[in-house]
Design a protein around this nucleic acid. Sequence first.
DNA 1: AACTTCGACAACCGCACGTCT
DNA 2: AAGACGTGCGGTTGTCGAAGT
Length: 391
Amino acid sequence: MAPDGLKDSWKSVRSIGAWSGRHMLKKGPWTAAEDAILKEYVKKHGEGNWNAVQRNSGLMRCGKSCRLRWANHLRPNLKKGAFSSEEERLIVELHAMLGNKWARMAAQLPGRTDNEIKNYWNTRLKRRQRAGLSIYHQEQQINSNSSTSLQALLSSSHPINVSYNNTPLSLFAMLKSSNPQPSTSSYLSNINNHLKFFSDNRDLSLNSPFSSSLTPLPFSSNSLPMPSLEYNALNFGPNISTSIITSTQPVEFPSIQQSETTPSSSDYEVEPQFSRGDNSDLLGDFGLMDKLGQKPVSNFTTPENNYQGTEKKGCVEGIMNPVDDDLFSLLDNFPLAVKPCSRLVPRKWQYIVRCRCRCNVGTEYRPTESTANVDWNINGSSCWYTMPSIY
DNA sequence: AACTTCGACAACCGCACGTCT
DNA sequence: AAGACGTGCGGTTGTCGAAGT
């Protein structure tokens, strides 16, 4: 135990900061005077070229330290203070989709820095792990006000930026719940006209995302994050539950643009590990998406007819109707999650999606009681987990 | 009162990547 | 082509006050 005098002297050393490096660059907490110098420097010379700060301003800080200080504390329009509940909710959802991509998450939270979000998440993670709570589930049910935001969406005459809390599927659910007409073309047209996803600066609306021949993914092409199913179940809320399944191993996607040929059964190795229930109520069942994400591959038969206890290659075809096609188109904009007990190895195609959706809004697709028990056990089940990103 | 734990925040470090020379 | 340099990102550690024991 150090005597008080010694402790105080160490404290004063800390307050001054440590020094390191050949040129005795200062480390540790920034002082107000240093901040003022850095602000003045950026005012004069603009951002960037951080290593020049020390040369030109006499500030004894390395470029990295200057950049960090500016980005996290000094730059204008920074939001300070605790995260709002809306921001917290968004962080949870973004993390479910992106993983530890703090900078990309920060891009969706104006005025917030990656460091802030990272700190928040790590603290939250620790707290919840200690409490034995799920990482992603929130205390309150989300999307409870979907209809309201949808109305705002549709009544707007200009494109609206929507964040990841409006996934294609949740939007679909919103659209259906507010306008339960059988035809989905109007929904899609509405989405195209009013919706603008923003991620990686991709404006999907420009490319008519749900009808173009190549649907852009809302992620950079070289890194496709995989969200957890926990997220899916949570985000889609009570109206639509879905599972999206792909390989248990990271899969190399040859190219999003590749393969316009018709697939054959040899293009896939599929080992179904689930039993198919009564699908009479299913808005969409499950199947393989084609390479372009336009439609499910339908030249396979049902597992009842096809598998017969063998590992016969093939794919399940569900009930396909116009809604399914639209739904799958929507799903094409949604990244994949993983069910480890299934083995699906796409060879040629962009990705494989199995999907089961149950829509209990409107009149046309109301589920029947007999199908209420059909459940793939996706709601927070421990058999689901998040896979690392695909590169 | 002393100590520990916790949480929020700040800062550092190593690495990767792109650009420039 | 290769190395230097600048920058950004994510992991990790440090700091400090509040709360708990």
